[in-house]
């Protein structure tokens, strides 16, 4: 009899969680990665507290290697909505000249993970909203919506607080903190449908456009600025490409596409998920029958 759709339910759940944090935590922050999930989170936060502005700042951990369009988008969005946007960069890492070409895992560790911890400690945030979803990976499928972190920001999956109904336990001691995931129960599909329904701004990189790219180990990498190191013989080509996820441009693979409207993107994305499913399931079946044939003395 209720006329609420599943998107309405998911929206209500996220807003409830955001209001709980604002009411119970002393110094929360919303992590903002500029991606589509962050765009949805920001939109939800604006709705949750209206007519008040979200009663907490937003924070972007900037590795200095993001796409230029992401940074422009971030600054415009902050201005448009009149929200406080903290931009934090691990300056030690910059001084050491860390970059995604030479330093691989160390680069990610220092410029992203360590930078986040430093920023949380510096501002003494006791709760940080994140846009992670449980459908993304297995360990996330088991993480609580309110996820406790000790003084070292570590998660202990063996000792999670039971989460009953919507009674979230926000009690912590000094130096400890919470990670809070209001869109835990959303799927990739929900995110795209909500972006469409609510007409939410997203970074243009999600839409296909003519962009200078090189193809490297099967990945299409955009030449976003002159820091991009070209291998001998590599010359940028102009191709119609778009991106499904956004991060540091030298580490983010795009793909060729003509989808330049939201509807086309949604169709393409959903088709990609579906085909991935089908092909994998077929693989599994094949593996099973091969196994059986092997045991039956096939070879």
């Amino acid at each position: 009899m209720s006329s609420l759709s599943h998107l309405d339910n998911l929206e209500a759940e996220a807003i409830y969680i955001m209001r709980e944090v604002a009411a119970e935590c002393a110094n929360p922050v919303m992590l903002y990665s500029i991606g589509k999930d962050s765009s949805v989170m920001l939109h939800l936060a604006l709705k949750a507290f209206y007519p008040e502005k979200p009663p907490f700042p937003f924070m972007h951990i900037d590795t200095t290697w993001k796409f230029k369009e992401m940074i422009t988008f971030r600054d415009n969005i902050a201005k448009k909505h009149g929200i406080e946007m903290i931009v934090y960069t691990n300056e030690d890492g910059v001084k050491q000249g860390l970059n995604p070409f030479d330093h691989g895992a160390a680069y990610t560790d220092i410029m992203k993970t360590a930078a986040l911890k430093q920023a949380l400690n510096q501002y003494k945030f006791d709760a940080a909203f994140g846009g992670a979803r449980r459908d993304e990976e297995k360990s996330r499928a088991k993480e609580r919506i309110f996820s406790f972190r000790n003084k070292e920001h570590a998660w202990d999956p063996k000792n999670q607080r039971p989460e009953m109904w919507r009674l979230f336990n926000t009690a912590i001691n000094k130096g400890e903190s919470m990670r809070v995931f209001p869109i835990s129960n959303w799927t990739e599909k929900d995110i795209w449908q909500y972006i469409k329904r609510e007409n939410i701004d997203i970074v243009p990189l999600y839409f296909a456009a003519e962009r200078p790219v090189v193809t490297r180990d099967g990945n299409i990498i955009m030449v976003d600025d002159d820091r991009m190191r070209l291998n001998p013989g590599e010359t940028p080509e102009i191709k119609s490409v778009r991106f499904r996820t956004l991060g540091c441009y030298p580490l983010t693979g795009g793909f060729e596409s003509k989808a330049d409207t939201l509807d086309e993107i949604i169709d393409e994305t959903l088709a990609a998920i579906a085909s991935e499913r089908t092909s994998r399931v077929i693989d599994n079946e094949a593996a099973g029958s091969m196994e059986r044939r092997k045991r039956e003395g096939y070879f």
Partner: peptide, 23 residues
């Protein structure tokens, strides 16, 4: 046809199929 079977699951299936007589 709703299953999202990822790579890891596929590998597990490889290594363990057979507990039900091969099916």
């Amino acid at each position: 046809k709703l299953l999202f079977a990822d790579q890891e699951n596929a590998l597990k299936l490889d290594s363990k199929v057979g507990s039900r007589g091969g099916a």
